[in-house]
Design a protein around this nucleic acid. Sequence first.
DNA 1: TATTGTTATACTCTATAACTATA
DNA 2: TATAGTTATAGAGTATAACAATA
Lengths: 156, 156
Amino acid sequence: MPESAAKTMPKPAQGRPAEGALEGLIGYHLRRASLADLAGVSAVLAGAQMRPVPLSVFTKIVERPGITAAEICRELAIQRANIVPILAELEARGFFVREQDAKDQRVQRLYATKAGRTMHADCIARIGEHEERLLGRLTQTERESLRELLEKVWRD
Amino acid sequence: MPESAAKTMPKPAQGRPAEGALEGLIGYHLRRASLADLAGVSAVLAGAQMRPVPLSVFTKIVERPGITAAEICRELAIQRANIVPILAELEARGFFVREQDAKDQRVQRLYATKAGRTMHADCIARIGEHEERLLGRLTQTERESLRELLEKVWRD
DNA sequence: TATTGTTATACTCTATAACTATA
DNA sequence: TATAGTTATAGAGTATAACAATA
């Protein structure tokens, strides 16, 4: 017969109700919240045949005309090898074009097309509606607090 | 950086500095923060040959002796099919045992062993140190705020 | 009919190593 | 030597469908 686990339950933190180890970890809530968000984003983007990572890559191209693949990778923490098929698909769908840099023959500068900018605006609007649902229980002040706290966590 | 990008930068939201579409999305910061956390957790758990998901599964076994695999799956939003190899490995390493339920022959009740509880306590301690680093820029009050805001986002 | 545990499988995302061409 | 873009590949993590045993 297995021994009781009650003895090993963690002591409640001072002033807080007893809870499991997972609930006490910020990382656990970060992960659950992020996964909940990702599911919603994926769902609304599916209607535009788009996915979260390719859209974040494309957002950089739209907002920073002439950006290079290597720059995008550094800013989004993507491996250079992994952006290749992402760019290939976005290019094949006519969302951006590549231009060889005149001064450095190694680099390609990327420019969104009109069709790409239209797709981008549509996707950002879809995500906006999704976030409105996701954050429905938070006030505007709470949303801004959350954004700032999260940024403090991950930004260098 | 080419100045031509300035023309296509989105208009700043009222009262806030100019920023890209990604920075304005809570979901983007949720994802970056969660990935930063996950990298750190994975690193500290590697020293104990453990990974985040198996540990979250095992935490349920430690804290709820007699819990079933199906219950764990519902609480952690894991597919039943995917928990099978996770439990197989934890069992093979001697961290828990299975007992057939007397009243319902379909279910197996799971009980952590002493070795399992020791491993669990070690891993939770490692993660605690990791979170201390991850959240180093947040006050205790801010950490508690963050936890509550995140919970409001994902919890039903 | 529904649920538990399971097998098999496929797909996405991510990580690593190595190559080429340029600088 | 270092960087940009690329290829190939392997590993997690996750998703779906189906099955046998039991309720």
